[in-house]
Simulated scan of single mutants.
Amino acid sequence: MQELHKLLDQLQSDISSFDKVNLSISSGSVGWHIAHSLKTIDQIVTACKNSNPNEYQWHFNFNRFSILSLIRKIPRGKAKAPKIVRPEGDISQETLTLSLEHVRENLMNWDSFDKNVHFPHPYFGVLNKKETEKFLELHTKHHLMIIDDILK
């Protein structure tokens, strides 16, 4: 999870540019991408916390294997964010900073979680702790690359 904490630092450094938009790159602002990334991390970590590790069962998923293990990059424009992780309402430096603090708190005990905590991903199936870490890192990097392109 060290990598994810570094990525959170990068998101934090982009908060001051929250209102920047480049419609040739994305319809979302820098703030939207930060808010979406934070909301995704928060929702997934909370789902893992609330999961029952004894109920986890691994199943092969070609999409998960392809993206998380082979390509190691989320392709742009291929999927739409589920409603539950789409930012709603006003996005400001203050709301982004509060969300970031909340996510950091939510991640505090991650290392102590059982290896079979899990959450159901809409494209990749059920992800355990290790797969979740990979996904959160790839997903956050994906949005940081979009943010970097918006800011160019």
Rank of each mutant, 00 (worst) to 15 (best):
I91E: 08
K80L: 07
L23G: 02
T46R: 13
Q2W: 02
H121Q: 07
I147W: 01
F119N: 08
L151Q: 07
N61A: 10
G28Y: 10
H33K: 08
V117S: 14
I34L: 06
H36G: 10
T97D: 13
L70N: 00
K152G: 12
P122R: 06
A35Q: 13
K39A: 03
P87Q: 09
R86S: 12
K134Q: 12
D42K: 08
S37L: 10
I15N: 01
L70Q: 01
T140K: 04
I150R: 03
E55W: 03
H102R: 15
K141F: 00
G31I: 08
F18C: 03
S66Q: 04
Q57C: 06
G31W: 01
N52H: 14
K130D: 11
S26Q: 04
V103N: 15
S27W: 01
N63P: 00
E105F: 15
S16H: 09
K39F: 00
R72Y: 02
Q10N: 02
V103T: 14
D42P: 02
L68A: 02
N61S: 12
L98E: 15
Q10P: 00
L107R: 15
S51L: 13
T40Q: 07
N52Y: 10
H59D: 06
H143Y: 05
I25T: 06
I41Y: 06
N22R: 07
D90H: 02
G31C: 09
L144K: 04
Q2G: 07
H5W: 05
T46W: 05
D9F: 00
S24N: 04
M108D: 15
F62R: 12
E131R: 00
M145D: 08
H143D: 05
S69Y: 06
E137W: 00
D149V: 00
G31L: 04
K20P: 01
E55Q: 14
D111C: 13
E94W: 01
R86A: 13
P120S: 12
I74W: 06
P87C: 09
R64Y: 03
L96W: 11
N106K: 15
T140W: 04
I15W: 05
L38K: 11
S29Q: 10
D114C: 14
R104G: 15
N106D: 14
D9Y: 01
L144Q: 07
I147P: 11
D42A: 03
N50M: 14
N128P: 02
H142C: 05
G31Q: 05
R86T: 11
I84W: 13
I146N: 05
V126M: 10
E3G: 04
F135N: 09
I71F: 08
G31A: 09
I44P: 06
V117R: 10
L11K: 12
K80D: 07
S27Y: 01
L138W: 08
E101S: 15
K49N: 15
I147K: 01
K130T: 12
N61K: 13
W110F: 15
V45Q: 07
Q93P: 02
S51I: 11
I25F: 06
D14S: 11
G77H: 04
I44K: 07
T97V: 11
